[in-house]
């Protein structure tokens, strides 16, 4: 690209292709560090991890890893804890997403109106999103503890439990502790994304509907919801995947206990890898979780493409 290069006979071709190469290479140069890191720290380990699922590989039982085909999956099939974790995953994910979404939609609709002190209110209600997960988990396990927390007394006052005890200690109710924490933590996320989508709906639409004689409820079902629908589907899908993979709250609050009653698939992966150091088994669970999530995503994407086409 320098002036000295000009007017050298026969140089045009070389110059052009060098300039061309430079233009092609430039974006890759900027992307290179990102790609190297993602490749080395995420994609390569992903491939290795998928491989573990088909090997017997336990750090507590030394000896070279060996390929065992589908043995790990057969073990899983016979593992009652796995089935329990699968059921729990459905409850955990379903309840968390539903409650987070409902709470988030309500909050977004409220914040989309005009009122005094909106900025402050917004900052306060979004704050839980910024609280580190481990702290959320610890705070809620303390709140649920009858020694220092008020929640058990509220629950018994409401008649939901007979006496103020720690619901985290009861296998039948323990899962609802992390779900409560998760709802607290996740409502802001839905509220923020839905609020952004709401404010993107042109206000002329509501004015036109009002002139056409629509009631407030009709405006909501005929304008707001259809407008939000594609966005809701994609957000709910991504969030579902994220929550199904999200083991931190459960691990910190109950460690999967009591008696594995709160283990979900992802926390089960973690305890299997972290405590039992059985990487083969852990990876097999992870592969099952991955497959389930992919099926789920495929279904939801199909629904979304139908929604968008309409």
């Amino acid at each position: 690209m320098s002036a000295a290069l000009t007017d050298t006979p026969g140089g045009t071709r070389g110059r052009l292709s060098r300039a061309y190469l430079g233009m092609v290479a430039e974006p890759w140069l900027y992307l290179l560090p990102s790609l190297l890191l993602i490749g080395g720290v995420m994609l390569l380990p992903l491939a290795i991890g998928l491989g573990y699922a088909f090997q017997e590989f336990n750090l507590l039982r030394p000896g070279a890893a060996k390929w065992v085909g589908l043995d790990n999956f057969q073990d899983l099939w016979a593992d009652p804890q796995f089935w329990r974790a699968l059921r729990n995953t459905l409850v955990w994910t379903g309840a968390s997403v539903t409650l987070q979404f409902a709470g988030g939609l309500g909050l977004a609709l409220l914040l989309n109106t005009r009122f005094h002190g909106k900025k402050l209110v917004q900052a306060l209600v979004f704050l839980p999103w910024a609280v580190p997960t481990f702290l959320t988990a610890l705070t809620f396990s303390w709140l649920l503890n009858p020694v220092i927390g008020p929640v058990p007394y509220w629950l018994s006052g409401l008649g939901l439990i007979e006496e103020p005890y720690n619901i985290l200690g009861n296998p039948d109710t323990a899962l609802w502790g992390p779900i409560l924490a998760n709802v607290w933590y996740g409502v802001p996320f839905f509220a923020i994304t839905l609020l952004a989508a709401l404010s993107a709906i042109p206000s002329e639409l509501y004015e036109a509907a009002e002139i056409d004689g629509a009631s407030g409820w009709q405006s909501f079902t005929k304008i707001t919801l259809p407008f939000l629908a594609p966005m809701i589907v994609i957000t709910v899908m991504l969030r579902t995947i994220w929550i199904a993979n999200f083991a931190d709250l459960i691990y910190v609050m109950t460690g999967g206990g009591p008696a594995n009653s709160t283990q979900i698939l992802s926390s089960y992966i973690f305890t299997t890898a972290f405590k039992r150091l059985d990487f083969g088994h852990a990876s097999a669970i992870a592969v099952v979780l991955l497959a389930l999530l992919m099926i789920y995503a495929a279904i939801l994407l199909a629904v979304r493409s139908r929604l968008v086409r309409r």
């Binding site: 690209m1 320098s2 002036a3 290069l5 000009t6 007017d7 110059r15 300039a19």
Partner: peptide
């Protein structure tokens, strides 16, 4: 009078 094809904008 100077050929500019390969000269960047700043030049």
């Amino acid at each position: 009078g100077r050929r500019m094809n390969e000269v960047p904008p700043r030049g």
